[in-house]
Design a binder for these strands. Structure first.
Lengths: 125, 125, 125, 125
DNA sequence: GTGGTCTAGACCACC
DNA sequence: GTGGTCTAGACCACG
């Protein structure tokens, strides 16, 4: 668990934490029943208010990614492979739909979009 | 000028206004020197505070899309074709970069992304 | 009298007119008793509201640069050479004082300022 | 942070606030990461609407002088020395260009301007 | 009529 | 506590 937060970003800190934990789960780096750092510990590590880590964990629980048991800590929830796959694809799918809508309304052809995407894939390190 | 705003959206109203005007300009529906509705008129039409429309126009001016003159109103700025093309591509570019970052962090291969995009392009009417 | 106004400038149109007439008077291009274009004529030439030219002339009269006689038109007022010289120098003097204050408060040495000024004098065409 | 505003000035209050904060930063009196007064606190101190201080801070952020984070407050941004130097010189440069333009349009020679400047430098205490 | 500035309140999300 | 957004008024300068 290597979480990095940026104070310069306009993204709320609890969102940054959430996204990185979700990402670890979806990539399979965090497996079922694996324990997460305690709210208090994480807050200390990130030099962040406990309220912030608490909020991140609460939302993760609400969205079904983790379970929290009082006195025992938080653990990655049991997930079917379908659940993970669906979540992963949903994130990308949503963005791709937006791009198709936008490019059409701006008069950018589908071919151009594909070309840009390929070029960026090679560019981004 | 047919601007629609949603109060339920989390997106600030002034952002919604901005985006729709930018979109009209980039699509070429609003041409150089064409007058925009006055901030008062637009505010009335949208049942929104004058300050909200003013903020939208102020940012549009700052970003070079429009010019505004006291006592005369606001007008679409003169744009080089390069300016328009660049702005158009920038919108798509930004989203594509995000997708590349996200798909990599989720362990989705580039080929899969391209396939999804092609499938969506055919699906979306 | 070759007055040029810019709609893109944030400077009020009547100010632009004023400045250019004052400049002509101070440079000596407009001499005592010389007639100025009528308010109506100037408004037409500049494609500007008569209210605007009227306001410019009114202020020029208030500041002693011109005289307006109903039915006869507007004329450059009689000025002593001292008056002209003083006005000319005052405009520059005010700005130079500001520069000295600013450069000192920003820690820019007087020598640097002089060097910048000389460089700019050669640069500006 | 000793900000003074004048209601009699024609300069907008938010401009006065901006200039004084910029000046403090450029002079080096406000250092990187140093916290600025909260927009609420500053508004109270200056007996001014919150919106006015907010507008000043928003523009300072847009121009790269400060960073502001919801829930945490506003802080002087990290600046390269080049950034500071450039901003400092720009302020003077802008004024010098104006002087060159004005003196030429008034028929005052460059030598005269330099002489006035030198005289003023000795005069101003 | 236009936009520019300002006020004195309010609600929300974040920390 | 912080800033972000929004409202419903107001006065001013400009054209």
């Amino acid at each position: 668990m290597n979480i990095v937060i940026s104070n310069r970003s306009k993204e709320p800190i609890y969102e940054q934490i959430k996204k990185q934990i979700v990402s670890e789960i979806l990539k399979g780096n965090l497996r079922e029943e694996e324990p997460l750092p305690s709210i208090r510990q994480l807050a200390e590590d990130l030099r962040v208010s406990m309220i912030t880590t608490k909020k991140a964990y609460a939302e993760l629980e609400r969205e079904g990614y983790i379970n929290t048991a009082v006195g025992k800590g938080s653990f990655v929830a049991a997930h079917s492979n379908d659940f993970l796959k669906e979540k992963r694809l949903y994130i990308i799918d949503k963005q791709l739909r937006q791009i198709i809508t936008d490019s059409r309304s701006l008069g950018i052809s589908f071919v151009e979009v594909i070309d840009m995407l390929k070029a960026l894939d090679e560019e981004v390190e």
